[in-house]
Design a protein around this nucleic acid. Structure first.
Lengths: 148, 148
DNA sequence: CGGGTAATCGTGAATGACTCAAAACAACGC
DNA sequence: GCGTTGTTTTGAGTCATTCACGATTACCCG
């Protein structure tokens, strides 16, 4: 039932266009993609699409709440389709790879900070930084290590 | 004892220069500053300093572990001198203001995610997003509200 | 305390990611 | 099908940051 996407878009008050459908579909299969790689993948299907249109589409979808925009430090903005559940992310400090993390342990224990400096807290964002399996493997390979 | 800063710099294996001392001193008084505002403040003392040098200094200090670089979404990188303690931040979604938050509540309850996808987690970053007192006040002022 | 050397700074150009503007185009309601 | 209005395209422009390289200066040494 891929046509549900069209309904989602319409329900958000947006017009259904080819690009938007393709972006949404693509994000199902390749979550945490940035604008550039989305553009690259999109060109396979629609060679004439421009990078600006991708930005356009993504910000429209993000504003409509159909995708979530995440911006890890030292990385271009990435987008994902998992919404609603307030899950978090692990980011690889080596290659920038991102995976989802369900914050299973205690819903929001540290999400209620003690001193909020008077801020009206709306959301809490948690990012874990570490090394992904692939990069860890490369680092452990003796031949590949420059420092012996 | 402001000269301690010089020792800190030396201890990190860096040469002690005027700019570096000034940046460190400045960050004590104005934490969470971005490169541009640091540059502006620095010019009061050293009018000839360039923005590139500020970037240079900041990345050297950050690489040496003397300052911490934080990069909230939709905001230029900011720098702070509080190190060691793993505190977090509240960011105002309206004006971008940042305040420190001591994660007093439970040291790392959600900092041990269940499924790490094989990542070797090194650090956890927590950002709270909300509205700061100043912006909240503006929003509540009827006259200032454009949507009535 | 002066000299040599390599780190650091200044100048200027360049990059990456994204935004803005206006004209061409296409979705949707009729 | 037709018109309205939201989208995309094209192209330029912005912002924060990085790169390159000659000029400068901090620090080690004698």
């Amino acid at each position: 039932m891929p046509t549900d996407l069209a309904d989602d878009i319409r329900a958000a008050g947006l017009r259904v266009t080819r690009g938007r459908l393709e972006v949404l579909e693509l994000l199902e299969n390749a979550p945490h993609s940035d604008a550039e790689s989305i553009h690259g993948l999109l060109r396979d299907v629609d060679p004439d699409i421009s990078i600006q249109s991708v930005h356009n589409i993504l910000s429209a979808l993000a504003a409509a709440g159909l995708v979530r925009r995440i911006e890890p430090a030292r990385s271009p903005a990435r987008y994902e389709r998992r919404l609603g559940d307030n899950h978090h992310h692990v980011v690889c400090t080596e290659c920038g790879a991102i995976e989802d993390v369900d914050c299973v342990v205690g819903h929001a224990p540290c999400l209620t900070p003690s001193s909020t400096s008077g801020f009206a807290i709306a959301t809490a964002e948690v990012n874990f930084w570490g090394v992904c399996p692939d990069c860890a493997m490369v680092a452990e390979t003796p031949a590949a290590s420059p420092v012996a």
